[in-house]
């Protein structure tokens, strides 16, 4: 496997994520209204719009500069739980990638794992709590497995997307144990987690169409 991801492609990943969030803004908000406070779509859209603006203004040339910019912008503009969590995710990804401009699949998998660790440290979520962890952790694992197997990046991302979407769907029957949804107890069961849904969009934004 020798296909790498350029900074330009990582930049495009963030812009595509922003577009997917904007397109799904109402759906994300509706999911949040069912078990939270109905602002997830609005907040993520505001944050990713600001992140794209920041990328336009600064044109970062390395992976670390790019993800630092996105992470800091989300922390400064989103608020709620999503701001610190998605912000921490991107800051940790940036720190793990460093000043590289070409990212290998194994580097990407390692960086996303660092991002996942950051989310756990900040939000203290565990598997099955009905949070973004439940979509991100399987996606990271799929990337790591693909990297170990020497898969092509495009195939690895498709596997990660399938894992993220399965993880997202698996949140529906879960009883929420973190965030505002946890106040609902049993009544949180039967609703898909909005944060996990955004994570699936994030992985989808990186994934090329089926070959």
């Amino acid at each position: 496997m020798n296909d790498t991801v350029s900074t330009a492609a990582l930049d495009e990943w963030m812009r595509t994520f922003a577009r997917l969030v904007a397109e799904n803004k109402e759906a994300l908000t509706d999911l949040d209204a069912a078990i939270g406070d109905g602002d997830h779509g609005e907040n993520m859209d505001r944050g990713m719009r600001a992140a794209v603006q920041a990328l336009d203004d600064t044109r970062p040339s390395t992976a670390s500069a790019l993800f630092n910019k996105v992470g800091m912008t989300l922390i400064s503009t989103v608020g709620g739980a999503s701001g610190p969590l998605f912000g921490t995710l991107f800051l940790r990804i940036g720190a793990a990638l460093g000043d590289t401009s070409e990212v290998s699949l194994s580097q990407l998998a390692t960086a996303l794992h660092a991002g996942l660790d950051g989310i756990v440290a900040r939000g203290k979520a565990e598997a099955g709590d009905k949070t973004i962890y439940d979509a991100l952790a399987p996606a990271v694992q799929a990337l790591e497995t693909a990297a170990t197997d020497g898969a092509h990046t495009a195939d690895a991302l498709r596997a990660a997307l399938a894992a993220a979407e399965n993880g997202r769907d698996a949140t529906t029957p879960m009883l929420a144990r973190k965030g505002r949804a946890s106040y609902l107890g049993e009544r949180s069961v039967g609703h898909q987690d909005p944060g996990a849904t955004s994570i699936a969009l994030l992985i989808a934004a990186a994934t090329p169409a089926p070959a």
């Binding site: 602002d39 609005e42 907040n43 400064s76 989103v78 608020g79 709620g80 739980a81 701001g83």
Partner: peptide
């Protein structure tokens, strides 16, 4: 913060 959303750091 925004309506029903925590302020930022």
């Amino acid at each position: 913060g925004e309506v029903f959303t925590s302020p930022v750091p």
